[in-house]
Each structure stands twice: as C-alpha cells, then as structure tokens.
Design a protein around this nucleic acid. Structure first.
Lengths: 73, 73
DNA sequence: GAGAATTTGTACGTATGTATG
DNA sequence: ACATACATACGTACAAATTCT
C-alpha cells in the first residue's frame, strides 16, 4: 500500500477493489481474506474493514463460509 | 452481556443504545468509548463496531476528538 | 499560546467460533 | 473428517482532532 497517501489503508484497498470490479478484473468472486491480506500485506481486520465498505456500498455481498461476491444489478 | 443470547455482543450493545436513544435516556451525547467499554465490559473494538452500526442507521454521527451524538431529525 | 487530557480513528496481532464444501 | 472462508472478540499501540487547564 502507499505509505505516503493520506488515505488510510482500508480505504486505499477499498478503492483498489472498486476499481478492479469496475474494470471487470474482478467479475464475480472477490479474493478471500487470506489472499488479500497476503497480496497487500495488511492485517485481516483491515481487509475486513475495506470489504465492509464495499458491502455498505451494495457493491458486494459476503456470506460466511462461502466468500464475497460482486453484486449483479 | 447475555452469554446465552445468539446475538453477538456488538449487536446486543447496538440494540441497548438504540433503546436508550428511543426512550430519551440518551438525548444528545452518546457516552464515550472509554465509558461504554467499562460499563459493558467489552473491548474498545467491539464498542466501536456497535457504534458503527448506529452510524450506518443514521441514528448518530461521530466526530473525531468530539464524541458521538444523536442525530436530530 | 502551550501542554495535558479526552475522544475518536487506524492498524496490528491473536484466538476462537460458525458455516460451507 | 477436513480444509477453506467469513464472524466475533479480545488486547495493544499510536495517530489525529478536540477540549480543557
């Protein structure tokens, strides 16, 4: 993540994921928490906060034991 | 908190605070994080999650360094 | 204005529970 | 039974904004 940005990590990650969804790089399934924590070097809690922001947007839905999925509209 | 309830602590606390706001017990300012953590014996993070739920409802607004306040409508 | 105290914000690590496949 | 994946919850530390002395 960008250390010099004024945006908190969770918000930077949320923006990156929004962009990946917008461009279609993520079409259906959002990578798992484990994957995202490793890819971005962030803690689990921080990744969860980013995903929660996308959920609040109605951009994705999360299901325990399954994963997080892009909302079709 | 009620150990036997299926509701998570953060949701129980959110419900308690909603009720206190509804009845007017909390009219303006929501107690600080420190106060709530001590009153309910919960961790800071858990209290924050409860407050976040109220914010998502539009029931309160939170301002860094100031506090959390009931939304007037 | 300076400094301390208060209060929320971000972020880490860790552990355990619950649901799915 | 087992592995994977999200959910809850604890503790801790420091940053940032505000308020008080």
């Amino acid at each position: 993540m960008d250390e010099n940005s004024p945006l908190p990590y969770w918000e930077q990650l949320a923006n990156i994921l929004r962009e990946r969804i917008r461009t279609g790089e993520i079409q259906h399934r959002v990578p798992s928490l484990n994957t995202l924590t490793q890819e971005f070097g962030l803690s689990r809690n921080t990744v969860i906060k980013a995903i929660s922001a996308l959920e609040a947007d109605g951009l994705v839905v999360t299901r325990q034991g399954r994963g997080t999925f892009v909302t079709r509209r």
